[in-house]
Computed example of a mutant assay.
Amino acid sequence: MPRALFQSHPYHLVEFSPWPILMANAVFSMMAGGVLYMHGIAHGFTFLILGFLATLFAFILWFRDVTTEGTYLGDHTLVVQKGLTMGVSLFILSEVFFFISIFWAYFHSSLAPTVELGSQWPPRGITALNPMTVPLLNTILLLSSGATVTYAHHALIEGNRGAAILGGALTIVLALVFTGLQGLEYVEADFTIADGVYGSCFFFSTGFHGFHVIIGTLFIAVGLYRIIAYHYTAEHHIGLESAILYWHFVDIVWLFLYAAVYWWGSDGVFG
């Protein structure tokens, strides 16, 4: 029987859990392993892999407990759901400022290119990607995925479980195609992250966005599984709503990236 039935308040009092301290140590191990690996220290890569696996292990088990609390124990009351939504919203706000710092670096160099850059943007010797090819296709794919995930959300609210599963599956397919094309674009690019400030800004901005796409895809995949497993109902699906909110943020960031980095920063605009 849900524990919330025996409480005189709607708040969730979290029980003692080993996952926060395990996660902290795992993330520290992964970071230390990454530093050792980049400095060529022996067994640094092994340390990095072990830290990553430990982080993944803690992540899965921690969210397993959260899923159990919300789905089977009834701990995610309306008040708790509001708190979770606020937490996700503040997390996305922090991500907004993270990408603002990236755009700040990009515009700092592109609006007033220095002599070292050839006083032009893209810098001399850099051939920017054509914004009307793969980047435009990726824009269409990502915007389409925003439509399909919204379709899945409304279908779930209306009790149409089949349509919700279809919308979630289509979103994942579109996201995977987007990620694959992004990787192909990196392989085909004439420049690398080592090619000055342009390469650094390009791969840092699009690469971190791609990382967010991968995280969002996993987020939605878990939501799709939970729809299939009857975890979500028309009235209670806070996890899926959080995933959709995150995915729309990823969509919006890509629009700014496409407009600024691909189109505005291309040879056709500046040349």
Score class of each variant (00 low, 15 high):
L117W: 09
L176T: 12
W121Y: 13
S110A: 07
W121D: 01
L184M: 14
P135V: 04
N130G: 02
F178Q: 01
N130T: 12
Q120L: 12
N160L: 09
L181E: 08
D190M: 08
I140S: 00
G207Q: 10
L137Y: 13
L141Y: 09
S119W: 03
A163V: 06
R226H: 10
Y186H: 05
F211S: 14
G210M: 04
A147F: 15
F191V: 00
E116R: 11
V149A: 01
T133Y: 15
I126N: 15
N130W: 00
E116S: 06
P123M: 05
F191Q: 01
E188L: 13
A164I: 06
Y198P: 01
T127H: 03
A164T: 01
Y225S: 05
C201M: 03
H154Q: 13
G168N: 01
V134I: 10
G118P: 02
T217R: 00
T217K: 04
T148P: 01
Y225W: 13
A189E: 10
A164D: 02
L218Y: 06
T192E: 12
L218R: 10
G180Y: 09
F219Q: 11
Q182V: 07
V213R: 00
F219T: 07
A194Q: 12
G223M: 11
A147N: 08
F208V: 07
G167K: 02
D195W: 13
I214K: 13
F204G: 06
L136G: 06
T217C: 00
A147V: 14
G146Q: 01
G167F: 05
P131C: 05
T150M: 12
G196H: 08
H154L: 11
E185D: 07
T206E: 03
L117H: 07
A112M: 11
S110D: 10
R124T: 08
A152M: 09
P135M: 12
M132V: 13
V197D: 03
P123C: 07
T148C: 02
F219W: 10
Y186C: 10
G118W: 02
A175F: 04
R226G: 09
L181Q: 08
E116Q: 13
E116I: 11
G216C: 02
D195H: 15
T171S: 04
D190Y: 13
R161T: 06
T217A: 15
F211Q: 08
N138W: 00
G146K: 14
Y151T: 02
L142A: 04
E116F: 14
V115K: 08
T150P: 00
A189G: 08
S109T: 14
N138Y: 01
E185I: 12
R161M: 09
T171V: 03
G210T: 04
L176E: 00
I126L: 15
A112Q: 07
M132N: 11
F204Y: 11
P123I: 05
A112H: 11
I193Y: 13
P131V: 08
D195C: 05
T133W: 10
H153A: 09
T171M: 00
L174C: 05
L174K: 05
L218D: 02
H212S: 14
S119G: 06
